[in-house]
Structure formats: C-alpha cells, structure tokens
Simulated assay, not measured.
Amino acid sequence: MANSRGHEKRWARAVAAGAVVTALVAGAVPAVAAGPERGVAHRHQELDEEALRAVLAEVPNENVTGGLIRMSGTDGRWTGLTGPSVPSADAHFRIGSITKIFTSTVLLQLAAEGQLTLDDTVQKLMPGLLPPGYHPVTVGQLLSHTSGLPIMTCAEEDMSPREAVDASLACGEPTEPGKATRYNGINYFIAGLLIEQVTGRSYGTEVRTRILKPLRLRDTFVPALDDWSIPAPHTRGMVVVPGSGSDELKDVSVQSPHSWAEGGMISNAPDLARFFTALYRGRLLPPAQQKDLFRMPAAASGERQFSYGGLQRTELPGGTLVWGKSGHAAGYTSGVFATRDLRRLLVYAINPTDRAPETPYVMRIAEAAF
C-alpha cells in the first residue's frame, strides 16, 4: 500500500476472501459453536470429476483469468487447470492468509517444547508491545482471532512488522479479548513477532527449519521483505487497476511480501497438499498440540470460527465437516480445505481480476469438491 487507505482496502479484500468459505457451498449452514463434534466425516462417495471439470470450464472469463483445482485423499486424486494465467499444475502462487497456518504450527511446536503456552499473554512474552491498559491477550486468542485487538488498517506497506503492529495499535480501539471472533491480520503479525522473540531467530528461519525442510516443501517460500519476486513457473495475477479509468488488466504477480507471517508466503498446490496432509496426520505436532490444532475456543462466534490452530471449521449441508484456510493477495485467491479424516483434501488457486467478487466461483469449486 502506498498509503493507509490503500492498506485498508487490501485488508478489506483479505477479509472478504476469508468470507468466501463461511459457507463453502450455496446454502451451507453456519459453522457450529465450540463443543462436541457434529456431522459425519464424509458421505463416502467417489470424486465427481465431471463436476470439477464443469467448474473449470467456466474459466477464463472477465472475472477470473485462470484456475487450478487439486484433489487428493483416500476418495481419490484429480487435478485440473484452465486459463492463460495458469501455466502448469505445479505453478507457484501467492497463498495469502494460508500463511497463517504455517505460523500457528510453529507456535504450537514452541508450546510443545515448553517455550510458551497458549495461555501465556502477549504482555508476558513481549512486554511493551501492547499499550498500557490493554486487557491481557493470550497466544491462543491470537491464533483463534478472539483477541479483540484493533483491526489492522493504519499500517503502510514499507513498514517493518513491528512498525505495522505499532501503527495499527495506535489508530484503533480494542474490544475485550475472549468474547467474540473477529478475523484480524494483526493477530498473526504479533504471532510472528512472538516466534522471533521466543526463539531469537527470524520467522522465516523457523518456518524453513521446522516445516519446509522436514517435509521437503521445495516450492514453498517465506520471501524476505525486500524480495517482491515470485519463482517460475507461476500463475499470473492480473487485475483491473482501481481509479485508472481503464478496464485493461495489469500483471501484479510481482508484489510486496509485507504481509509476512500473516499472509506473505508463496507455495504451489502439491506442497500445500503435502503440508496439510502431514499436519492433519499429526506428523508436525505431538498429541496435546494436535488436539489444540482442532480445538475451538469457547468464545467462537459468528459465521467464521477458528480453532487454536487457526483452522476454520465449517459444517456443510448433509453434515460434512471441513477444516482449512483461504488466502488472498492482489490477483490471487486460494484455499486448502479437507475433511479431518483426509478422505478429501481440496487445494484451489484462481486469479481474480477484481472486476467482481470471486466468491460464487469459489463456492462452486467447493460444491464440486465435497
């Protein structure tokens, strides 16, 4: 963002992208509150490859220049792609807020090692970060978006993560933590800062050491804050420039990674499928933290609810439960959602033009996938 208004618009788009999966298919019921699991793992039907092909056949169009769908799991495997912006099934793309799950996984690993707990407060771990007079905010409240911290609107693109947090805290008012869900990127900027504070190493180093190298995710990257590039092959983000007076599309594939621990990473569909599969199977976390990964806070409320691992929980019509995360960056919308038993795992990546909301198209992808 060149200014706070631009930054605010980007955050509004990111929040809207997260809302895409509040009801993954048309008519989906809202996510249920914390408590015993409801619903079934899956209807145990074979993948509907014809339905998946039909969704891809809608692209390209004026609102989406290309798309990629990758299905895996015990119900079967299928991959399809379409449009000039998607060169291959293993093309890189900016994953936006899916980054948050890498961040939460590192923090859960630190909890497993006894370096912190989900009940530790930000005030204890980083004295002076939150203004005096703020209620105690716990690590668990950050990860589940129940912190009540001000929405992140005043940070600018050239700020460091700490500067971005300070700027946002200076221009907003908090609500009482632990009372309600409010999706907010500042939670994961602070989570990244906590990782660096506790370990004494950079956020990128911890993600690479703890997740990328052990899982051999060779196509997943935490860019340096001055690295705007994206490795080839990559999908192309093509958007209409607001206020330009032109309907022509601009290639925005090269863009700032300043969303950092909240949304700055790059990956591809095979790597994301491998990461979420390993995560759900317990390969990255011991049993106590694996339970936290899916544990919902008592304060979970509203249509979007997040676990202590940052996963969104959604119950679909018919009772199927899916867990995962969506992401957005200019020209890029993506998501990873799966049944908890990994019968089905969906990775999608599309290139919206920002001419119109891409929500209906994403909902059709999810309907075909699950």
Rank of each mutant, 00 (worst) to 15 (best):
G6W: 04
E8P: 06
K9V: 15
V15T: 10
G18C: 11
T22N: 13
G27R: 09
A28L: 08
V29Y: 02
P36R: 13
V40H: 05
D48N: 14
E50W: 03
E50C: 01
E50F: 01
A51K: 11
R53A: 13
A54Q: 15
A57T: 13
V59T: 06
T65M: 12
G67I: 00
L68I: 00
I69H: 08
M71T: 02
D75L: 14
D75I: 05
G76A: 14
G80P: 11
L81N: 10
G83Y: 06
V86F: 03
A91L: 04
H92P: 04
R94C: 01
T99S: 13
E113F: 07
T117P: 12
L118K: 09
T121S: 14
V122H: 04
Q123T: 01
G128Q: 04
L130E: 00
P132W: 04
P136S: 14
G140M: 10
Q141Y: 03
L142A: 06
H145T: 12
G148W: 02
L149F: 07
E156S: 01
S160H: 03
P161L: 07
E163Y: 00
D166Q: 08
G172L: 07
G178S: 08
N187F: 07
I190M: 11
I190V: 13
A191N: 08
L194R: 08
I195S: 02
E196W: 12
G200V: 15
E206F: 06
R208D: 11
P214S: 02
R216E: 10
F221D: 03
V222T: 05
D227Q: 04
S229F: 00
A232H: 09
P233Y: 00
R236E: 11
G237D: 09
V239I: 15
V241N: 02
G243M: 01
S244L: 01
K250G: 00
E262Y: 13
M265I: 07
S267R: 03
L272T: 06
L279A: 11
R283Y: 04
Q289E: 15
K291W: 01
K291P: 01
F294W: 10
S301Q: 15
G302K: 06
S307R: 06
Y308E: 08
L311W: 10
L311Q: 08
L311S: 09
Q312M: 13
W323R: 07
G324E: 12
H328Q: 09
G331D: 10
F337M: 14
A338Q: 07
R340A: 14
R343E: 13
L345A: 07
L345G: 09
V347K: 03
I350P: 06
T353V: 08
T353Q: 08
R355K: 15
R355M: 03
E358H: 11
Y361G: 04
A366S: 13
A366T: 06
A368E: 11
